[in-house]
Computed example of a mutant assay.
Amino acid sequence: MTTRPRDWEAIVDLIERVLADDDLLPAVVAAVRGHVEESATLPVSDITGHTRLLLTAAGRAVAARRAPTEAELTVVEQLAVNRARQGIPIDVVLGSVRISERAIWARTRELAEEAGIAAAHLLDARELYDDWADAVRTRLIRAHRETPRTNDVWDRDAESLRRLLEGGSAAALTAAERGFAPGAGLWVLVTRSGDTASTTAVRRLTEGTGPGLAATVGDALVAVVPSQPALRPQGSGSVVGIAGPVAAEELGVAHRLAVATVPAAEATGLTGAVHISEVAAVAALTSRPDLTEALALRHRAARHELGAAAEAVARTVRAWLEADRDTAAVARTLYVHENTVRNRVQRFAAVTGIDPHRTFGAISAWWLCHAWTVDS
């Protein structure tokens, strides 16, 4: 059935009514954010803006019975590039477009019935739209595929990151501005700055987490991302401390925990991605310099009595505890006789009064020996 000019005028009027529908765009954006998980991390304004552009371009093309112009395809390319840089896969982009199409055409059919437009005439318009959409999808896929993959989806906005790490209401407002989904758990990653291997490790861990923020804070590289990092081992020997998931208001606490994770992991010989829960006890000890100082001060006389042997004794006792009191293993590691290991443990217990064989004695012994070896 061929649509006559008068009938096509009705289609054009219908398209204009669809484009002017104030309730349509918010409904489309809500549908996309509700059904496509990766889109929930994007700002509403981002999705709304691109959806409006595509809807308007499609409406004008169908009304004029033409293919997309090069200017329209340039806009499509920019959408693909943005999504690629944000770490959004192309299948997710196309899925969002399909959800938008379903919502738009459902509303179009409703308005067509109210206007008394024949289904056959509406089908003609849909066929024109499908031709336009095929060209758009082809350009989307190509531009997304050709976007350079730098693996750096971070926005290095130090000021926004600072506000996030403040925690409280400032962090909540900043998280909303950045498009982080309300109520979604956020993750903090920390590693020592100036180390290329550590920076690379953080980038690999955050692949696929969605767009986050990263910046140098003090002597550390800090990143905040909206989904769980890939907690997989890294072969670089570096440590990336991780804390989360937490609400935006708790990011300040999470940052402190992630920072404490790095020296705690280093103290226990762990490398790669280390969550605070893996080293909670050690972090609790090493992150309290006031208590460490009190412990060291309490046993200052014992260290003085050990004299030049203090460092060797402390390293032996610490290694012995970390090896689950395996004397033979420690002797092999330190290249000493097993009796030397036993004598040093006994000497430590004698001068400090701490029994490293008991549970809490072992904790105090490790903590004190760690303080002595760090200071030496």
Rank of each mutant, 00 (worst) to 15 (best):
V262T: 10
R126H: 11
R142T: 14
G210D: 05
T333E: 11
V81N: 07
A119P: 15
D13L: 13
R102E: 14
R344W: 04
L111H: 02
G167Q: 02
A61N: 04
F180P: 03
T199K: 12
D157R: 03
E37S: 13
A265I: 14
R156E: 12
E311I: 15
L186S: 00
L251C: 05
R65C: 01
S160P: 07
A61E: 04
R315C: 14
R52S: 14
R4K: 11
L186A: 01
A31R: 12
G185S: 02
G183Y: 01
R342Q: 11
R163Q: 04
E127M: 13
A281T: 12
E305Y: 06
A135W: 02
R318I: 06
L205W: 07
V81Y: 01
A172H: 00
E166G: 13
A175C: 01
L334M: 08
V190K: 05
S198E: 06
I11E: 01
A267S: 11
G218R: 00
A284H: 06
L161C: 03
H121M: 14
G194W: 00
I104K: 02
I11A: 07
L24E: 07
L25V: 10
A63I: 00
F348E: 02
H121A: 12
G49E: 11
W320Y: 08
A349R: 03
S364K: 11
V240Q: 00
A215K: 00
P226V: 05
R300L: 13
E77S: 15
P89V: 05
T327C: 08
A63S: 12
Q78I: 14
T150P: 08
A294N: 06
L334H: 03
P229N: 03
A273R: 06
E16W: 02
L42G: 06
